[in-house]
Amino acid sequence: MVKKIVYKFDVKTHVLVPKHIKLKKEEISEILQHYNIKKSQLPKIKKTDPAIEELEVEKGDVIKIIRKSPTVGETFFYRVVV
């Protein structure tokens, strides 16, 4: 077989993947209060999602996503881990 260097690639560095941050408890309640919603009303993200593999998340954690938006520059988006 022809030699092939196999290196593990880092999903986080891909152009399509925005930054994912795990939120602390206080921050979660702050956000829920700000939008006046329950946690279950947030959009969801799977626990097994490749982009949050290294964050060691549990069910019910909230992930803050910093997206690059073509309309406003930088926006925040929140997803609850299911």
Partner: peptide, 18 residues
């Protein structure tokens, strides 16, 4: 920078946000 036009492939490798 390598991308595919297969949405499900993208999801399984890079996640929902991608």
């Amino acid at each position: 920078r390598t991308v595919t036009n297969d949405i499900f492939m993208t999801e399984s490798i890079l996640g929902v946000e991608a």
